[in-house]
């Protein structure tokens, strides 16, 4: 699904990713953990194609294609989804309107007709129930006046509606209380499928209690320094990151 080789990326001339390697096979859930400033969010943004990052070396292949050659919107239409750590408020563009435009952009890309308005609304309402979101949020501006938790749920709602082949969730657990975390996690878990992969970028282990990863990678100073199964996350919880920072240096 996703193969990253020797990825180097800089922001304002400062190198953040320094030869990152990561492979996420189809159907698997991988967690990327790491201390603050290790490059986790940069990785997520580089994958989604955010402007402002310079890729100085390396390759990223997504479903066999050169991901870095695609524009952000093409990546999305190809089935890549980024769940934002800080979802943006866009007053005046309503939620359902964005969802529909997004779904139709992907459908058009695949040569399909636009989604039927009624079926679409039914689908969205189902997913909203799953995310325990109030239906009134549909007609509100994108994330407008949403609490931190509501914004994160809205990200997952978008993901559920768009059904990406690869979702990269950037610190989706940050700012969530335990109930919201469970709702978000159960939403994510419904999307687990043999033809879909997930990358959970997170600082803490607690999300992984609810979304159990197949692999855990530790990102330190712009490189994956260790990979393992879910017990690695537990070890990190116990020992912190310092011992790995020491090893990476």
């Amino acid at each position: 699904m996703l193969t990253i080789e020797n990825l180097h990326a800089t922001v304002d001339g400062k190198e953040i990713l320094k030869g990152l390697n990561l492979t996420v096979p189809e159907g698997e859930v991988h967690a990327v953990m790491g201390p603050n400033g290790s490059g986790k969010s940069t990785l997520a943004h580089v994958l989604a194609g955010r402007p402002g990052y310079a890729i100085t070396a390396g390759t990223v292949r997504f479903k066999g294609r050169d991901l870095l050659a695609l524009s952000p919107e093409e990546r999305a239409r190809e089935g890549l989804f980024l769940g934002f750590q800080y979802p943006v408020e866009i007053p005046g563009v309503n939620n359902v309107y964005l969802l529909k435009a997004a779904v139709n952009a992907a459908r058009k890309h695949r040569g399909l007709a636009e989604v039927d308005a009624f079926e679409f609304l039914t689908l969205v309402r189902d997913k909203m129930r799953l995310m325990r979101m109030d239906e009134s949020m549909l007609s509100r501006g994108v994330n407008e006046g949403f609490s931190g938790g509501e914004k994160k749920r809205n990200e997952i709602l978008q993901m559920l509606v768009l059904e990406p082949s690869l979702a990269v969730l950037d610190e989706t657990d940050s700012g969530l209380d335990i109930d919201a975390l469970k709702v978000v996690a159960s939403g994510v878990n419904t999307l687990r499928a043999p033809n879909r992969s997930l990358v959970l970028v997170t600082h803490y282990q607690r999300l992984l209690e609810h979304i159990v990863p197949d692999r855990v990678h530790v990102l330190v100073n712009g490189r994956i320094v260790r990979s393992g199964d879910r017990t690695l996350a537990l070890e990190l919880e116990r020992r912190g990151y310092d011992w790995l920072i020491g090893e990476a240096a």
């Binding site: 989604a48 402007p51 999305a76």
Partner: peptide, 11 residues
């Protein structure tokens, strides 16, 4: 805002 919309596949 612009990047958020692009990241959802909007042209």
């Amino acid at each position: 805002m612009l990047f958020y919309l692009l990241s959802r596949g909007i042209a």
